[in-house]
């Protein structure tokens, strides 16, 4: 399958998955296009559309937690940022994703 068609397929699948969790694709269309393309390339390389901003490890159980959309495995952290780590998805009420900050999960514990 070519990259463009697979990007559209991922867009279709992931849109349905994130909606009930209160997320949508980022309004930053350039970022969405870039990130989806990276995921398709990662899928072609590894067979799995991993998050483009997370480290792929030697452990299957760890890697399965960074398969897009990885929101279910990072709920508290992403809800606090109102976006997922790579920014592909944002909370439904977000209109300007450039205002959102990317901070590590460890920052939540510090308060």
């Amino acid at each position: 399958m070519n990259v463009k068609a697979r990007k559209e397929a991922l867009r279709y699948f992931f849109g349905k998955v994130v909606d009930p969790m209160g997320y949508k694709f980022s309004p930053d269309e350039e970022l969405v296009d870039f990130s989806l393309e990276q995921e398709v390339l990662l899928e072609q390389k590894y067979g799995v559309p991993y998050c483009p901003c997370k480290r792929i490890t030697a452990s299957r159980s760890e890697n399965m937690k960074i398969v897009c959309p990885c929101i279910p495995f990072n709920r508290e952290h992403f809800d606090a940022m109102k976006r997922c780590w790579c920014g592909l998805f944002v909370h439904k009420d977000v209109t300007d994703p450039s205002k959102l900050k990317q901070f590590p999960a460890a920052a939540l514990k510090k308060g």
């Binding site: 870039f34 990130s35 990276q38 390339l41 483009p52 901003c53 480290r55 790579c86 920014g87 990317q102």
Partner: peptide, 8 residues
């Protein structure tokens, strides 16, 4: 960085 990561 990762070459795939837009924030990088």
């Amino acid at each position: 960085a990762l070459s795939t990561c837009p924030w990088c």
